[in-house]
Amino acid sequence: MSTDSPTIPADVAAHVLSHFGRGGYPAGDWAESLISLIDRADMANRAKLLATFPEHGRAVLLAKYDEEGIATLQRIARGETVAVDSNPNVPF
Rank of each mutant, 00 (worst) to 15 (best):
L50W: 06
A13N: 04
K48N: 02
V84Y: 05
M43E: 14
D85C: 09
E68F: 09
L62N: 02
A47G: 01
G69R: 10
N89G: 12
A77E: 08
R46Y: 04
E80A: 13
R46N: 04
N45M: 09
W30N: 05
L73G: 06
G79S: 07
A51K: 13
H15P: 00
G24E: 05
V84F: 05
P26Y: 02
L61D: 06
N87P: 04
P88T: 10
S2K: 08
A31S: 10
I38T: 09
R46F: 08
H56E: 07
A71S: 13
E55F: 00
G24Q: 06
W30H: 09
L37G: 05
S86H: 08
T72K: 15
A41Y: 05
R75F: 02
A10K: 14
D11S: 13
F53P: 00
E80I: 07
L61P: 00
L62S: 04
P88I: 15
W30G: 02
S86N: 04
A14N: 04
A31Y: 11
A10S: 15
G21I: 10
R22I: 00
R40D: 11
L50I: 05
R75I: 01
N45E: 10
I70M: 02
A44E: 15
A10I: 03
S2R: 12
D39L: 03
P88L: 14
V60H: 04
D11R: 13
D42Q: 10
T52R: 13
M1I: 11
L61H: 01
R75T: 10
G28N: 15
A77T: 09
A77W: 08
A41W: 04
A63K: 03
E67G: 00
E80M: 12
I35W: 03
T72M: 15
A41P: 03
E68C: 07
H19K: 11
Y65E: 10
L73M: 07
I38D: 01
G23Y: 01
A59N: 05
R22K: 15
V90G: 13
L61Y: 00
L37W: 08
L37E: 12
A59G: 01
A44T: 15
E80H: 07
L50K: 06
I70A: 02
Y25E: 06
A71R: 08
P9H: 11
I38L: 07
A10R: 13
R75H: 10
E67Q: 11
D4C: 02
A77D: 09
V82H: 13
R58M: 07
V84K: 05
I76P: 09
Y25S: 09
M43K: 06
A63N: 03
S86W: 07
G28W: 07
D11H: 15
R78F: 02
Y65P: 00
A51M: 07
S33A: 14
R75M: 14
A59E: 01
A27D: 11
G57H: 06
I76W: 08
A83F: 12
A13K: 07
L34W: 05
P91V: 11
V82F: 07
E80G: 14
P91L: 15
R78C: 04
S86Y: 08
A63M: 01
R40L: 13
L73F: 09
T81L: 05
T3K: 11
D4E: 11
T7P: 00
D39V: 06
L49N: 06
D42R: 12
D29Y: 01
S2P: 15
L61Q: 10
I76V: 14
F53G: 00
A31V: 12
E67R: 14
